[in-house]
Every structure is written in C-alpha cells, then in structure tokens.
Design a protein around this nucleic acid. Structure first.
Lengths: 189, 189, 189, 189
DNA sequence: TATGAATGAGCGTTCATTCAT
DNA sequence: CATGAATGAACGCTCATTCAT
C-alpha cells in the first residue's frame, strides 16, 4: 500500500491524488485504506517522514582533528550518501522537492524546520571553516541558503526532469561540491 | 481584480484559495469573475505569466567586447534588476517560488520551460567564460542548475520566511554573486 | 424547502433522513441545499426553534387579581392556544415529541432547558395555588413533571398515532385540565 | 455481552453507539459479536424486549372483591414494583424512555403497542372505577394517556436528569398516585 | 455588462456487516 | 467457536462552473 501510494503521490502530487486513485491502484476497498491509515494526510506524512528521517541521518557533521579524515573526503562521503538515499527513494524525493508547500500549514512548518536544520548545519560548517582560515568571510546565512538551494535544484532537476538512473551521481556530487567550494571562476582570475 | 487575486493567492496559496475568496475580496459577483476569466486556473496563469515575462526581460545576456562594461558590473546590474522586480512583485514571487509546482502537469511543464531557459542562459555565460579563460572547466548543466537553485532558494527564504523589505537586496545580491563566482573557500586554500 | 424538510423529518425522523432524501423531495441539487442551510443539523434546528419559540409565547403566566379573568378561563385559553399551535405545526410537533433526544448533546441540552422552563412555570403556578389555598400540598417538582408528562403524552398520542384533524382539541384540552386539577376520582370518595 | 451493551447503549444512545464501541468494551472480536447477534438492531431489541417483558409482568390488574386488598394498596404495590424494576434496570429504562423512538419504524410500532397495552389497562381500571362509582366520568382514553405520560415523564426525569439512587422512589410513587387520583387542587375548591 | 441562484460531480470519511482462516 | 481483515454503500459536505435574468 505504501509503495503504491508512493508511486501515485509521486506521479500526481498530493492534491491531485484522491483516495479513489490510491485504492484503485492498490486494488483494495475504501474501508481497507482507512483500516491502515487515519487519513490521506496521514499516509502522506508517513511516507515523507521516513525519507526526512533517513536523510537527516545521512548528513554527518564534518569533523576536524588530527585523526579525522580530510574534510573533503568527509564532504564527498556525505554527499554520496545523501544522493544515494535520494536515489533509493526517488519517488519520495520527487515529492519532497516538488510538493514543497501548500499541503497545509502544519506541513509547511515541518518542511521549513527540516530545511532550517540543514541551513544551520551549513552555517556551522562555514563558521568552523572561517575559524580554520579556509572559508571566505561571507554572510553565512545567505551562503548556507545558496548551498541548500544548489542541492535542492540539482536533485530536483536530476530526479524530476531526467532519468535519475541515467545520471552518474558520484560525478554530479563532485561537481556540486566543487561549485560550492570554488564557484565557477578559475582561481586568480 | 488581478491585484486582488494576487494578494489572495499569495496569502493562501492556490489550492486554499476559492473562487469565493477572490470574488468576496474583489467585491464582484461570481458571474462577473467568469466574464473576465475562464477559470480559477486561468487567472492564476495570467498572474504568473506576467511576472515570468517581466522577469525574463530583466535578465540580459552578458556582453563581451571592447565597448561593453566590465562583466561583473553587468552581472551586478542584472541581479539588481531581477531582485528589484521580484521585490516589486513580491506577492507573485512568493507564489512562483512556493506554490508553482503541483497545480497541474500543464503548469509544471510551463514552469519547467521557464527555468530551462534560465538554465540555458547560465550555461551560455559559463561557456563564454570558459572561452575567455575566466571560468573553470565544469559540467555546465550541473553548475547552471546550482546557480539557479541558489537564487531560487535565497529569494524564497528572503521573501517567504523573512520580511523582504527589511533585507538589503543589493548586499544580498552581491553575496550571491560572490558565492557563485568564488564559492565559499578562500582562494589558494 | 423548509416545508419539505418538515415533512420528511416528521415522517422519518432526524437520523433516518439523509440530505439525499431532503433534496430529492424538494427537487433541488445538493449544492442548492447547502446554499440555504449550513448543515443538516442547521435546518433541523431552524425548524424546531421556530416551534419552540412560538410555543413558549403561547403559554402565559396565570394572573390572579380582582381584574383578572377566572384562573380556569385563563388555563383553558392557554391550553387552547398551545394545542392550536401544535395542531398548526403538527409535523414539527411530531418531531419535537418523538425525536426527544439523541440528535447530539447540544440538542439534548436545548430540549432539556425548554422542558425545564415549562416545569418551572408549572411549579410557580402550583406554589401560587397553594398560597391561595386552592392547591394541595405536594412535591411541586414531581407534580409539575406529571402535568408536563400528561400534556406531552396526550399530544404525542393524538398527533402521532391518531389523525389530529379528527380530534376535538378543545374537548381534549378540557379533559386534560380536569385530570390535572382533580385527578380521576370522584370528589369525596 | 448483554450487560456491556446495556451500559454502552445507555451511556451513548443507540445511534452514537457503534459496533466498535460494543466489542471494545466487551473485549471480543467483531466476528464473535455477529456470532451471537444478528445485527446492532437485534441486540438492542433483545435488551429492550427483556425490560418490556419484565415491566409488563409487574403491572397487575387491580382486583375488586370481598377478599381483595384495598385498591389503593394494590396501586401502591404495583407502582412500587414498577419503579423498583425500572431502578434495577435503570440503564435500559434510560434507553426505553429517552431513545426508544426514532430507531426505525418497526421499533416504533413495537413500542407503540407496548404503551397501547398499558393504556388499555389504565382504561380498564378507570372503567371499573366508574362502575364502582369511585372514578369521575371522563374520556378514559385521554385520562389513561395522561396517567401514562405522568409516569413516563417523572421516571425519565428521575433517571436521566437526576441520580435515581438519590431519590426516594416510594415517596415519589405516592406523589404520582396522589396526583393521578386527586389532581393538584384541594378537594371542594 | 453584471448578477447570483443553481448545479452536480466529486471529495474524504464512516461503519455495519461478511467470511476465509 | 473465535477471529479480525476486508468490504463498499452511504454519508455529509465543498466548490468550480453555468446560465437565465
């Protein structure tokens, strides 16, 4: 049922998906649906909460210290993990990135908090980087949002408008990291 | 009518706005609404099309040549114009960035084309930059999406979650350009 | 619409009447119903509130004094008015007396208050009667409920189980008053 | 199971009680419920039929004759028995008096017959009383309904709106009999 | 041009009942 | 005997759209 709902929601979006669509696709009766899920909203939540939780678990704070691996390796690993998680859950990823708002105000808040936490992590990394003398002085909030936006947009483009399986995710991740770290100019220009 | 619809859509979102909301706010009769607009979808389209057209007019291809102003000045000017347009139309900007997906598949396609054109423009600029030897070799498609995503996210954050009037748009624009050009690392690190 | 709803509710009761029944009988569309009434509950309320208000207006406190008509005449007049009101609204009377409880707790309370006011009025009359030395000493609360119950039962019987138009209401009213005042025994026995 | 259903029906009323409520309270499975009862309606019937039968058994025709106890003692005894039965089954009494109408037309008819039999008994007693010269000439049908209504209303009031255990039932019964026999006026007034 | 009463397909949800195990 | 997952008809209600005036 969850798998079916995932597919339908992913194809049609939340509002355009009716209970009728879900139960027809799952070939169950109306009542059966409500036996397992409290409401349309509830199954949607259940679906997305799983991805959000998994996603958050993939993102690890970059450690600095004599025994820690080089920061760039940690970043690569995190990005690889995140992209893999999204790829493994590409239907939900599609929903998470598309159905950004407009379900209801509760959902908007939830999503906003999720992105807020990611923003906070990027800001933390930027500040650490500045203390270590490797990061440029900048408005950390704006730059954190830039990074977040880069990731969201690239992933959405790759997953929604392209065939995600045809894309070399590792390569794409490296490009995103390079852009985030160095921008698009050659150094010294 | 359009102004009223703009306000209501911006406040409540597309799905949560009913024809009743629109005609009540505009103080016209139901029939009158349908005299001027084919449907709820149609007025929403009209509203967004206006912004999209205006927005596209603000973005000018960067010229290179002996008589052209320095590229950085052109970029600053374009970003300033775009941000000003968005600020002047912040209600529609809010809608464009928050709610524009998930209305229906026709609309999604339209939006996708709009962003596609912007992506193409960024890619063009990147390629020109590389020919001039100032841009890093990179996957232009990915980097173009990164830049687009940065802008979208920052603007959405500024307009939806903050008070856009309390933000120094020029400064914010400069931060975004700096990030886009140079990333977040100090040069040479 | 109200007339139709009155008939249907009266025939089938509140729970057994569906919106479908109402709109079919009135030959209007679903939407039209909700154009005029907020909900099924609302139209039911509207129907009953009217009768309850009218009914309460018919019951006048019995006046005692040198210029007042004889109490028995006042009682007869009040009973005649009440019975006439019920007869004129016999469909709603049927509902009021049958659908005594079970709509929802709000409605139960409302009805309970209505009967409470009538009880209070009977108790007042009984106490006045005792001060004037014409009423027996008794538990006024119990006797007030007895009188109320007599009226409810007789009216329900007459309206629900008989053809109310075939009954001589004036005669029935006189019987009820006689019973209430003197019981069923011959005096002195 | 019957005891549980009695409690739940009494607390929530027929319509507001779902099969879920019943089986949860009885801690049995859905299927088990339908093993013992044909339907929700059936268990409700069974519950009420029991009380109705018991109740009818408590009401004995008043005997007149040289060896019979004084009629007033017989009446007191019958009323005491009826009130005791109702008190012992106060949950069902609550249902019988509050909710019994409006379930469906079959049930309404059944109830109507029950009250019809009681009415007939009262009419018989009144007619006997008149032959013995102790009862007033009156419309026996109306007076019988008055008596029935008195009892129903007082009992309902006592059981539903008051705490039945806090009421002196014997005293209440005597008041009702006194009212029924002598009304509320002092004799000779 | 403007109106607003009327429409009805469609929604999400409930719950008494069934039946394979 | 007992179970409880599954059913689906029916519910009350919404709202974008139409059309006679």
């Amino acid at each position: 049922m969850l798998a079916v709902a995932r597919r339908i929601f992913s194809q049609k979006g939340y509002h355009a998906t009716s209970i009728h669509d879900l139960i027809e696709a799952a070939d169950i009766a109306r009542g059966t649906f409500y036996l397992y899920f409290e409401s349309k909203r509830a199954i949607f939540d259940e679906l997305l909460d799983g991805l959000v939780t998994t996603l958050q678990a993939q993102v690890k704070r970059i450690e600095v210290g004599p025994d820690a691996p080089p920061p760039i390796d940690q970043m690569n690993a995190t990005v690889d993990r995140v992209l893999k998680t999204l790829l493994d859950n590409r239907e939900m990823a599609r929903i998470l990135l598309r159905e950004a708002v407009g379900i209801d105000s509760d959902f908007d808040r939830k999503l906003s908090e999720f992105y807020g936490r990611i923003e906070a992590m990027f800001m933390g990394a930027l500040n650490t980087g500045r203390q270590l003398g490797v990061a440029r002085p900048c408005d950390a909030k704006v730059v954190a949002r830039c990074i977040l936006g880069s990731v969201k947009e690239v992933v959405q483009w790759a997953f929604v408008e392209q065939d995600p399986l045809a894309i070399d995710m590792t390569k794409m991740g490296r490009e995103m990291i390079a852009f985030t770290l160095k921008g698009c100019l050659v150094e010294g220009s």
